[in-house]
């Protein structure tokens, strides 16, 4: 919920910017040191790490490895 509220506020702030302010902000993003939290595929983390970027890897895969039938069964077996 906090993330959603934050995202909404960000969007409102963004909508009040002029085009040049938006361009400037995008440039800031590209020029600042990148901080990454990668959720899922490890290889994305590995590629960034090999380029000296600090990455926090969050191991995640879809429930039941993406097998829809097993995921459906799990939804009825879990509370």
């Amino acid at each position: 919920m906090q993330l959603t509220e934050f995202t909404m506020k960000q969007r409102i702030d963004d909508s009040r910017m002029t085009d040049s302010e938006r361009r400037e902000k995008k440039l800031e993003l590209l020029e600042a040191p990148i901080q990454v939290v990668n959720v899922g595929l490890q290889c994305f983390s590995d590629d960034l790490s090999s380029q000296g970027v600090k990455v926090v890897q969050v191991n995640w895969i879809p429930p039941a490895g993406g097998n829809a039938r097993l995921a459906a069964l799990l939804s009825r077996l879990m509370d």
Partner: peptide, 8 residues
Amino acid sequence: IRLVVETS
């Protein structure tokens, strides 16, 4: 077994 299948 549910947790094993859910998380892989």
